[in-house]
């Protein structure tokens, strides 16, 4: 049974078609990175998977069940979405924010019990924000806040976690920390992780599979070394990129090339392996 299976997906916003024809799937326990140029429909795809946008047509199954068969709350208990929203006018504390992840598991009149507090505490410990529990969200750094939002998503106890550019606006050390955190989550909890990212190298290092989309269409899906090739990348992004292997560990490494740099352009045209 696939964690998420999408086929023939079409999404419209007004008259504009954002996703024209997209099919893809993620196995349970997969780490899928969704990459592609700005406006390709990556975030829209995540929102469709989280049930925030309803598609014009196409089929979407979550754990084998059609998305439409889930109630809002059931879906929230199965799929968690991590975005970068923050409303600084209404500052909750870290603990209050993480506890909100229990909402899909609680009835309207039900209050959080010890069990829920335990789950929240574990989630905070897992993302290493437990020492910040009493701090207000607007007093945190970007990296800390991102870890809090991931803790909230863990607290939802989902089978699938969707993340929209979780490393954007973070310094390299924090980028690495977040990615390692997701990797541990996948290993420890068997969670399926689907992440939209512009960072091709982080995707190559951590994702098991990469989905490349452009103009609302799936261009290719597969292991990083099959998708992150100069040809595919030029097709998707319209610019040359130099691809080789990371000197340590041997994962695929993508480097940008300035257009007028002839010495490098030559290297790009010759396949490297």
């Amino acid at each position: 049974m696939k964690a998420v299976a999408v086929s023939g997906l079409r999404v419209r916003a007004g008259r504009r078609e954002i996703i024209t024809d997209l099919s893809c799937a993620a196995e349970q326990g997969d780490f899928l990175a969704v990459i592609g140029p700005n406006g390709a429909g990556k975030t829209t795809l995540l929102k469709v998977m989280a049930g925030l946008i309803s598609p014009a047509s196409g089929e979407l199954r979550v754990l084998g069940r059609p998305l439409a068969a889930y109630s809002r709350r059931q879906l929230a208990a199965t799929v968690a979405l991590v975005t970068q929203q923050l409303n600084p006018d209404f500052p909750f504390t870290v603990e209050e924010t993480v506890l909100m992840g229990r909402a899909p598991h609680l009835g309207l009149l039900e209050r959080e019990r010890r069990h829920d507090f335990d789950i929240a505490r574990q989630a905070m410990a897992f993302t290493q924000v437990d020492h910040l529990a009493a701090r207000r969200l607007d007093q945190l750094s970007g990296g800390e806040r991102q870890r809090v939002m991931i803790a909230r998503a863990i607290c939802q106890q989902p089978r699938i976690m969707l993340l929209d550019e979780p490393t954007a606006a973070l310094d390299p050390a924090h980028q690495l920390a977040i990615m390692q955190l997701l990797h541990r989550l996948l290993k420890a909890e068997g969670m399926t992780v689907i992440m939209v990212s512009h960072d091709l190298n982080l995707a190559a290092m951590f994702a098991g599979r990469v989905l490349l989309i452009k103009e609302g269409r799936g261009l290719a899906i597969g292991p990083p070394e099959e998708i992150l090739t100069p040809d595919y990348l030029r097709q998707a992004y319209g610019c040359s990129m130099y691809v080789d292997r990371h000197p340590l560990g041997g994962t695929v490494r993508v480097s940008l090339v300035a257009e007028n740099d002839h010495s490098l352009c030559k290297a790009v045209s010759t396949p490297v392996d």
Binding site: K47, A50, G51, L52, R72, R73, L75, A76, A77, A80, L81, T83, Q85, L86, N87, F90, F92, E96, T97, M100, G101, A103, P104, L106, L108, L109, Q156
Partner: peptide
Amino acid sequence: LILARPMNLLLTGQESAAALGVH
């Protein structure tokens, strides 16, 4: 009063609230 918790979730943004199961 019954809707106090969904209102809390709403404060974190409409999409975030929806992702936590709020209609």
